[in-house]
């Protein structure tokens, strides 16, 4: 299956970004992918799928698979607390996927001048989960490539 990983014009025009954190690192997701943010609730386990897929949840009658971003980044899951959130993303207009994050922070405006490209060294960002790096007065944020993060299968 192929997905459109076209970077569009985000690097030239900037845009709104939802920030969340895992451990102490701040990550961002372009707002256009985001459907809603819900609190962490009971996840129904689906057997025999990779570990980073935690299971499925019921969002108003829709069965939505849930991905653990921690697992995706090679970290161990931590027990959910009241700040643990599920960000529900939508692809291709219908395909919904939720991602579990430690905590959601804020929505910020990424200005074009603050957006830098990721290094291209073969050992850095090898799985290309990071699309851009945003650096502004609030610090450094890693903008994630949602399609890669969510839809690309583990090799």
């Amino acid at each position: 299956m192929t997905y459109d990983t076209d970077v569009q014009t985000f690097d030239t025009s900037g845009g709104e970004v939802l920030l969340f954190s895992i451990d102490d690192v701040i990550y961002g997701i372009e707002i256009k992918y985001i459907n809603e943010i819900i609190s962490y609730e009971n996840i129904t386990v689906v057997p025999k799928v990779p570990q980073y897929i935690k299971g499925v949840i019921n969002i108003r009658g829709q069965i939505v698979p849930i991905i653990s971003v921690r697992r995706r980044f090679g970290k161990e899951d931590i027990p959910p607390d009241e700040r643990t959130c599920v960000i529900v993303l939508e692809f291709d207009g219908s395909n919904q996927v939720g991602i579990i994050v430690d905590r959601v922070r804020e929505v910020t405006m990424a200005k074009p001048e603050n957006i830098c490209a990721t290094p291209t060294h073969k050992n850095v960002n090898a799985n290309h989960y990071i699309k851009y790096i945003i650096e502004d007065e609030g610090g450094i944020k890693l903008l994630l490539n949602c399609e890669k993060l969510v839809l690309e299968l583990d090799k």
Binding site: T44, V46, P47, V56, I63, P65, N95, Q96, V97, L153
Partner: peptide, 29 residues
């Protein structure tokens, strides 16, 4: 039906044909 993401991992081949929502809102496979 399972979402396309899950179909990629061969849930069908592992004997799961879909999910359903139960009366209390929980999900059954």
């Amino acid at each position: 039906p399972f979402s396309p993401l899950l179909n990629n991992f061969g849930v069908k081949q592992n004997g799961m044909s879909g999910c359903s929502i139960l009366g209390d809102g929980s999900i059954t496979i």
